[in-house]
C-alpha cells in the first residue's frame, strides 16, 4: 500500500513540467539595476526613427500585389466585361450585382448594370481571379468613405478605369499566372 503510494508520488513528480529557472546572482536579485537597465532600453527608443506615416499629407503608393477596391477595365472606351456573372457567383460576400444585355459589338454581351456594394466587399480578389476576360481587377485605391449606405454601391460610372491606369496590376497578374 505504502509502496504503491510512494510510486504514485514518484510518478506524479515525474509528470510535473520542468521549469528552468535561471539562478540569479545576488546583484540581479536586487532587481533595481535591472529596472534601470530596462528603462535605459525604453528611453533609447525615444530617439529612434518613427514608423508613423503622416497620412493625409504623405500618401502610400501600394505595390502591384496590393488588393484595393475592385474596378472594371475599360479598353477602347468600352468595358472588357461580358457580364458572365462569374464574379457575382464567386463573390463570398455577395457584393457584386450584374445585369447583362446584348450589344452590337463582337463580344455580344455587356453589363448594362454592374454594381459592387463596397460595404459588402471584403477585398478578397476572387472576382479578379475568376474573371475569364481580365475585366475586373483589384486597383490600388483603398480610400473609401461614404455617408449613406446607398453611396457604398458603386455603379459602372465609378468602376470603369482606363486600362492604362491599371498596367501595374495587369502585368503583375500575368507574371503570377
Amino acid at each position: 500500500m505504502t509502496n504503491d503510494k510512494s510510486q504514485m508520488t514518484n510518478y506524479m513528480e515525474n509528470q510535473k513540467p520542468i521549469v528552468h529557472r535561471k539562478d540569479l546572482h545576488w546583484w540581479e536579485m536586487f532587481y533595481i539595476p535591472q529596472i534601470i537597465g530596462g528603462m535605459k532600453i525604453t528611453l533609447t527608443q525615444v530617439f529612434r526613427p518613427k514608423f508613423t506615416r503622416q497620412y493625409p499629407e504623405e500618401k502610400w503608393n501600394p505595390p502591384p500585389s496590393f488588393r484595393g477596391r475592385p474596378v472594371l477595365v475599360e479598353q477602347n472606351g468600352v468595358e472588357r466585361c461580358v457580364a458572365c456573372g462569374l464574379c457575382s457567383r464567386v463573390c463570398p460576400s455577395l457584393a457584386i450585382d450584374v445585369q447583362a444585355s446584348e450589344t452590337e459589338l463582337s463580344k455580344e454581351r455587356y453589363p448594362v448594370k454592374f454594381e459592387i456594394n463596397m460595404l459588402r466587399c471584403i477585398f478578397c480578389g476572387f472576382c479578379e481571379e475568376v474573371c475569364p476576360e481580365e475585366a475586373i481587377v483589384m486597383s490600388k485605391e483603398f480610400e473609401l468613405t461614404f455617408t449613406h449606405q446607398a453611396d457604398g454601391i458603386f455603379g459602372k460610372d465609378k468602376l470603369l478605369i482606363p486600362v492604362e491606369k491599371l498596367k501595374d496590376r495587369l502585368e503583375f497578374l500575368r507574371k503570377m499566372r
Binding site: T42, L43, Q45, V46, R48, P49, K50, F51, T52, Q54
Partner: peptide, 10 residues
C-alpha cells in the same frame, strides 16, 4: 506622447 515615442510612434 512619451509612450508613443517609446514605441517609435508619433
Amino acid at each position: 506622447r512619451l509612450s508613443a515615442a517609446i514605441q517609435n510612434r508619433i
